[in-house]
Design a protein around this nucleic acid. Sequence first.
DNA 1: CATCTGATGTGCT
DNA 2: GCACATCAGATGA
Length: 262
Amino acid sequence: MSAKRRRMQLLDDQKISQEEDEVAIENEKDSVASKYFQKTKMRLPSVFYNKPCIDLAKSFLGQVLVRKLPDGTELRARIVETESYLGGEDEASHSRGGKRTERNAQMYMKPGTIYVYQIYGIYFCMNVSSQGDGAAVLLRSLEPVVGFDEMRKFRSGRRNASKPLKDKELCNGPSKLCQAFDIGKSFNCRDLASDEDIWLEAGYEVPEDNIVSCARIGIAYAGEWTHKPLRFYIKGSQYVSVRNKTAENSVTSGETNSQEDK
DNA sequence: CATCTGATGTGCT
DNA sequence: GCACATCAGATGA
């Protein structure tokens, strides 16, 4: 574990124990199982998701996605890359032109609703509905925090398995993270603010200075929308799917998140 | 590092 | 029928 990551972990622990205290005080008189505290203390609430698409895509950076497996094991990874898909006018969005079908209905649902769709027959991508009609945020890359072995196992599926994956290869792509977290179509339509098996917990806020904004990936067909800066990632992160050095250099910040390869 | 290609099947036209 | 918000492996520099 690098010094950097240790520092981040410490920051998290501080935040977590703070919130723990607050919740404990709030529920002092209630005799609710401690399990309840475990789940509610860190979970980001419904109101967190109720913001405009671009704001949400940026606020996701630094937050932690948690997945509870059937056996109780919890996987954790920090969101480091997202994309905004706006409503009707966005030619790259599944909701372009106000299109609304059975497949993309979740994009129009309550902010925080998960939209999972299958792509190229074999992969899944996970989005979260935001404020705005037909708007959603695509999760593109995560930095693994807890559960490396499980993620590696879920990811070994259709590959050679000749060489073990590096940590940074576990979740550096929208479908890779779905594999690593074992997220499939059954997660479609669930609510991140209340679901038992998946949720977001407070990590840290990434300052605007440390966010790279650039073009989205894989939407070359979208005309003028192809080059709009609707992809966001933490500057310097080694866990991002595709880095854009040009865009990184135009971000006015001295600090980066460079880390050694693993 | 960059670029290319095959895999694969659902949802929409 | 065809397009597709991808990935892994191969190849060349």
